[in-house]
């Protein structure tokens, strides 16, 4: 497999910035393990069956690139992947882990960030942002920038859910952010917004619509078309501004 060095290189350059390789084979574990060892492979190797079939690939190797939400953004032969393409995909991701060597007073901040405790990282960094030592100050600003980027990524996701009116998703996102940013002003804000969303009528409507649609869906193909259409239209009418209501309206068109 002449593609291995290329993938090792991509892994070395981009893994810590949020780029993960999932290289799937369905051969037996012993064969895969020997190959991984012999070639010194350091990227993710997975044993799983039927993936080529599920993805409709035409042969080995085939590749797909998925974005942070699992959507396909590229497909092709892995040899066609360039550094510039990967750079473009990861440029807006906050680093998963900070690996840069920082001044020892900021070690706690970096450690907290790397554990996903961004609120704690933020309060650690805050202590050194106005340090008189220019090295400490610069490192503090660097880590602060990383946290800021991570916060922006979360806010962009929340904004998308807000635009779509997907309140259950928004509440879930905000709760996760509140936990990750626990101890900071941002975390507090996220927690409060999640709470007020969950208390709203709109949120309750979303949940109700989803639960009715979930109940209806498994039965729908056994129903008479006319009845199925009516049931879907009722959900769409009762809950017009919810994701499940909109989905029901779309589904009703097929009957």
């Amino acid at each position: 497999m002449k593609g291995v060095p290329h993938l090792i290189e991509l892994n070395n350059k981009f893994r810590e910035r949020g780029f993960e390789i999932v290289a799937v084979s369905d051969e037996d574990a012993g064969t895969i393990e020997k190959f991984v060892k012999d070639k010194g492979i350091n990227y993710g190797i997975i044993k799983a069956s039927n993936v080529l079939k599920t993805y409709g690939g035409t042969g080995y190797p085939s590749a797909w690139v998925l974005d942070v939400e699992g959507k396909v953004i590229w497909k092709g032969h892995p040899a066609g992947l360039t550094d510039a393409m990967v750079e473009d995909w990861v440029k807006d991701l906050a680093p998963v882990k900070v690996t840069k060597e920082v001044h020892k007073v900021l070690k706690n901040a970096v450690e907290a960030y790397n554990k996903g405790e961004f609120g704690k990282a933020e309060s650690e960094v805050d202590k050194y942002l106005s340090s008189d030592d220019p090295v400490v100050k610069a490192d503090a600003e660097f880590v602060d920038g990383v946290i800021e980027k991570r916060r922006a990524v979360g806010e962009a996701k929340a904004a998308k859910a807000r635009d779509l009116g997907d309140l259950p998703k928004l509440a879930k996102l905000l709760e996760a952010e509140a936990k990750a940013f626990d101890g900071s002003e941002h975390g507090k804000k996220c927690g409060e917004e999640a709470k007020s969303i969950k208390a709203s009528k709109e949120f309750k409507d979303c949940v109700k619509a989803q639960s009715e649609l979930d109940k209806l869906k498994p039965k729908i193909n056994d129903m008479k078309a006319e009845k199925a259409k009516k049931a879907l239209e009722k959900i769409a009418r009762d809950f017009p501004n919810t994701p499940a209501g909109k989905e029901a309206a779309e589904l009703a068109k097929d009957f």
Binding site: V24, S25, Y55, V65, P78, L93
Partner: peptide, 20 residues
Amino acid sequence: GATKLSDYRERVVLLEVWAT
């Protein structure tokens, strides 16, 4: 800790199907 592909959300993933 990943046991399935969807554990990789938050990351950009290169899914490659290969053979030795």
